[in-house]
Amino acid sequence: MSRLNPEQDWVIHDVPELRIVTDALWDAVKRRKKEIDATPAVQGIRKSRFWEKKRSQHLLTGKLDASGNLWLMRDHRDSLPTTGGGDHGEASRVLECR
């Protein structure tokens, strides 16, 4: 198990020649981020603390791909078959995803 070293043991050096963003651009982005963070929408999102709430489970959560194909869980050791019906309404075609 890896652990962080204590902060007093950290060695930190400023190496400006390795920067890929200029200081002016960095400062402008930080200012813009502060402006965005101060908006009522962002304040409301932070106040709601949505990330601490558990999402409800739905019947097909995690079982459909982007095209609407249903992932069939069969006993295939090295592949995962899907129905290839998609928006055609047919489930006769089966794809093997490895």
Rank of each mutant, 00 (worst) to 15 (best):
D87T: 15
S56R: 13
F50R: 07
I20V: 14
L80K: 07
G89M: 04
C97H: 12
K53C: 03
L70A: 02
R19N: 15
V42A: 05
M73R: 08
E96S: 12
R3T: 13
A41N: 08
V15H: 04
A91V: 11
P16Q: 05
L64H: 07
N5I: 13
R49Y: 01
A38I: 08
E96W: 04
W10V: 14
G44T: 07
D75Y: 09
S48C: 09
V42Y: 04
D14M: 09
E35P: 00
K53H: 13
T39P: 00
H88N: 11
T82E: 03
T39A: 04
K53D: 08
A91T: 11
A38S: 15
C97Y: 07
G62I: 03
I20L: 15
V94M: 11
R49N: 06
R19Q: 13
V15C: 11
E52G: 03
W26T: 14
I20C: 08
L72A: 10
V21K: 04
V21W: 10
E52S: 04
K33V: 15
H88Q: 14
L95K: 04
M1G: 10
W71D: 02
W71T: 07
C97S: 07
S2K: 15
M73D: 06
H13G: 11
H13F: 15
A91M: 15
L18C: 11
L70D: 01
A28V: 09
G44V: 01
V15G: 05
H13M: 15
G86K: 00
A38F: 03
R74P: 02
T22F: 05
V15K: 08
W71N: 03
T82N: 03
